[in-house]
Write a protein that binds this DNA or RNA. Structure first.
Lengths: 131, 131
DNA sequence: CGTTACGCTTACGTTAACGTCAATCTCAGG
DNA sequence: CCTGAGATTGACGTTAACGTAAGCGTAACG
């Protein structure tokens, strides 16, 4: 077993967040690093969770939603019923995300249309000034 | 010219937001409806802008960023230099959005992997209980 | 002509997600 | 032993994005 660990400042440097942010996430039970004495020690799993948290944030998820999403990636030794409930939740999130992707594609297309329009206008203006 | 307009409550009903929200967006200069006396009257263009605003929000953009994005869809009678600057800004946003889509695809794939893992576990548990 | 519905402004309140600051601890180096 | 770098825990401050409540205008309806 690979026992790589990180101090708070190492993790902060890597992901460009402040210590305050990590402690805040911990207070919200999104991460729970080990303690060596009083100090926090982050594992590979903590690091992975942080990655997921920050990704979630970039898509506009609230921390509370992210906390639920993280449970999907936890999935330790659950009971069957628990597991099935979790799976159902995952399906929901999946379709939400797929819907989001459709919207994003739409937004990208719209923007491209606008840009082409803009290109044309620039071209016309340049021709006009050449005359 | 099609002169369809909307009252504040009509627009609110359609997009499931409160009047306060629309007034707030107006105060931040994201929309600027006509006034009939004191009352606001929203045009088709205002409605389109609102649509874009809400879409932006769903992707985690801040209102201030959205305000800039909206300028791209405005593009009235700009000067050439202005137009080119706007175009450059659009290119930036475009690549940001494409980056976001890559991340989203990644997130979706990750989730699918987890779900398959979950399916397997459920299957094994069911077989175990059948024995 | 009263009231009910809708709208307006002003202004203070609220929640999420941290920032910032102070006081304390702790441990390796000189 | 002293110092300084990094860590910790409160605790209050801040910003964005609205919510909410008060007080007022006005216009149609019974």
């Amino acid at each position: 077993m690979d026992e790589e660990t990180y101090t708070i400042s190492e993790l902060c440097a890597e992901f460009e967040v402040t210590p305050r942010t990590l402690r805040f996430y911990e207070s919200k039970e999104l991460i729970s690093p080990q303690r060596i004495g009083q100090r926090r020690l982050y594992s590979r799993k903590d690091r992975a969770r942080l990655k997921l948290i920050l990704r979630g944030k970039r898509f506009g998820f609230a921390l509370e939603e992210i906390r639920q999403l993280l449970e999907l990636y936890h999935m330790g030794d659950q009971q069957l019923t628990q597991l099935e409930r979790t799976y159902a939740l995952a399906q929901q999130h999946l379709s939400e995300m797929e819907e989001k992707r459709r919207e994003l594609d739409q937004a990208i297309d719209d923007l491209k249309v606008q840009m082409r329009w803009c290109e044309d206008k620039v071209a016309t203006l340049k021709k006009g000034s050449a005359a």
